[in-house]
Design a protein around this nucleic acid. Structure first.
Length: 564
DNA sequence: AATAGAATGACTATTAGG
DNA sequence: CCTAATAGTCATTCTATT
């Protein structure tokens, strides 16, 4: 049984009670309700005028459908309405694809000796694109958790009060992560100084062996409706709030970066989550926080979790041999028009009569589609996502980044650097019961306000928000969102984290009575894999601003009376 | 025409896992 | 060895405004 689902029911009722929330709800209502029947004039007219069946067959086969399916569809619908035929063909394709894939996977698992129930749960949670090995790992790990749990109940453990660092009861066995002694304060700034003196030898500080490994599947301390029981984790004493804090960055960093981040954030083990479990696009991120991890609940409505559900119009053009159901990570740069043309040419020059393109062409096209997150928008035509589609995939209201004089390029950049709202909101949902009257928020590196949007969509009132964001266009986006959602609290905008001084913090804290949450994701420029120029790690020009997050969090903790 | 801002397209290495 | 993924940077070109 899953310990989670019991807690999912009690919060959704709150969703529509507030006026402001309804505005928000409206902007999401296009999901799932979009009908795909009204367009299809563009580029399709030629097929319907001389209606003889050979031409029809030729046209549809040219679109990538098999001849037998086309003939069958024409028999069913007659040859007058090409719209109807196309719909039928798409239904065939969808069904046969899904059923085939699902069925073979399920029977393989059952053949291997797993229970049908176990197999289905695993398939449900790992997504329809999951490999067999991923599914078996999932089932195996779930079994281990069960056993471990049973063992715990048999022999209640004795407390090891000798160590300040209490152990983490995470659901996966980990021998790779060894929390350090708590000599932090002095030690970490000594280390900080040492890094700057490194000269010729590049990776010296990675050599001490504490490399953090990423979990597989990447579901952190749990995702909605997953069967893994959540065990209470024990935080180091110094890490416990107030304030709560929540730090985020890319999961795939150079070696040693996450160990260091964790070391600076009170040795808390990062929670690595891939947002593909919350949305139709992947987003592998690490989160370090001191929030409770029990009784989380997801944002409603549940967003579409496949490309086909999120972007229904692309299904018309999606070839059978493109098996993608999830998008890759949404980045700041998009594919070029030249690439679209290259792909179109490759397909058209190799499209034999009534057949799929040859394997080497398929391979090339699929590689490029994955690399640049391209979707099918016409016959043999792929294109990058539109900004509003990215907004939707990330959980923002439609047109969140639109207007205010922001360029298309800057929208892509801002969105590519943002939170996935559903994922973050799931982690923050535990605050709702604790703060019925709202929270005071310190939001560092706010970007386009992912944290604010997540809290608002959770129905957690925002009392005082100090938002620190360097880009003016992003501050404009947050301010206009603040006004449009009729926030009653106060929004204080600061441009630079380096200007967040002790004096200012003291002033805010004494005037608000403290911050309830310090949230932020520091720049990943120098950590991200796509960076070919300056992937310098945590000490890079931008990414080293991480240390300001640590500085400010430490100050807030100290001023609020803990950790002295 | 001069200018600034926006758009374009070419540019790998480091991870992890099999 | 292989496949696969990856919140990006930069010089150049285009375009809108003056």
């Amino acid at each position: 049984m899953d310990a989670n689902s019991a807690s999912n029911g009690n919060h959704d009722a709150d969703w529509n009670t507030d006026d402001e929330l309804e505005v928000c709800n409206e902007s999401f209502s296009h999901w799932g309700s979009t009908s795909s029947g009204q367009e299809a004039n563009g580029g399709f007219g030629e097929a319907s005028s001389p209606t003889n069946s050979t031409k029809l067959i030729h046209d549809f086969v040219g679109m990538g459908f098999s001849k037998t399916m086309v003939v069958k569809a024409i028999e069913e619908n007659g040859e007058d309405d090409s719209e109807e035929i196309l719909e039928t063909l798409l239904t065939y394709a969808e069904n046969s694809n899904h059923i085939l894939e699902k069925d073979t996977m399920l029977s393989s698992l059952v053949d291997m000796g797993y229970l049908v129930e176990e197999a289905l749960t695993a398939m449900n949670n790992c997504g329809s694109e999951a490999q067999l090995s991923e599914l078996t790992d999932y089932i195996c790990a779930a079994q281990m958790v069960k056993d471990f749990d049973a063992q715990l109940r048999e022999s209640p453990d004795e407390d090891d009060s000798t160590s300040v660092m209490t152990s983490y009861s995470y659901t996966m066995p980990r021998n790779d992560y060894l929390p350090r002694e708590k000599k932090r304060k002095l030690h970490k700034f000594q280390q900080f100084g040492r890094k700057w003196h490194k000269g010729s030898e590049k990776k010296h500080w990675d050599e001490d062996g504490d490399i953090m490994h990423l979990p597989n599947p990447m579901i952190g301390f749990g995702i909605p409706d997953d069967p893994w029981p959540i065990v209470e984790r024990k935080l180091p004493e110094v890490a416990i709030g107030p304030p709560y804090f929540y730090y985020e960055n890319v999961a795939l960093t150079p070696k040693g970066v996450w160990s260091k981040i964790s070391r600076f954030l009170y040795d808390i083990e990062p929670e690595f989550v891939d947002s593909k479990h919350f949305s139709a696009a992947a987003r592998k991120r690490g989160y370090v926080h001191n929030l409770p991890i029990q009784n989380r609940f997801p944002l409603l409505p549940i967003p579409p979790r496949t490309i086909q559900e999120a972007l229904p119009l692309t299904s018309k053009w999606w070839p059978l041999w493109d098996k993608r159901r999830k998008l890759n990570c949404l980045q700041t740069a998009i594919g070029t028009a030249k690439l679209t043309e290259r792909i179109r040419n490759a397909l058209e020059n190799n499209m034999k009569y009534g057949d799929e393109p040859p394997p080497h062409v398929q391979k090339f096209v699929l590689e490029q589609c994955r690399k640049w997150n391209l979707v099918w928008v016409g016959k043999n035509k792929v294109a990058p996502l539109e900004p509003d589609e990215i907004e939707m995939l990330l959980g923002f209201p439609r047109d969140h980044t639109r207007g205010g004089g922001i360029s298309r390029t800057d929208r892509y950049k801002a969105l590519g650097n943002s939170f996935q709202v559903d994922t973050v909101a799931y982690h923050l949902s535990v605050l709702k019961n604790q703060f019925p009257n709202g929270i005071n928020l310190l939001s560092l590196f706010s970007g386009i306000g992912g944290a604010e949007v997540a809290l608002h969509r959770l129905g957690i009132p925002l009392k005082n928000v100090v938002s620190v964001e360097i880009a003016e266009v992003n501050r404009n986006i947050i301010r206009s969102w603040w006004e449009q959602t009729n926030q009653r609290g106060q929004l204080i905008e600061i441009a630079d984290v380096q200007q967040v001084s002790i004096e200012r913090l003291d002033q805010w804290i004494s005037s608000f009575g403290g911050f309830d949450l310090v949230i932020g994701g520091s720049p990943c420029n120098n950590l991200a894999g796509s960076n070919r120029v300056s992937r310098n790690g945590l000490e890079g020009k931008h990414s080293s601003l991480f240390y300001h997050y640590v500085r400010i969090l430490d100050l807030v903790k100290t001023m609020m009376g803990r950790d002295r």
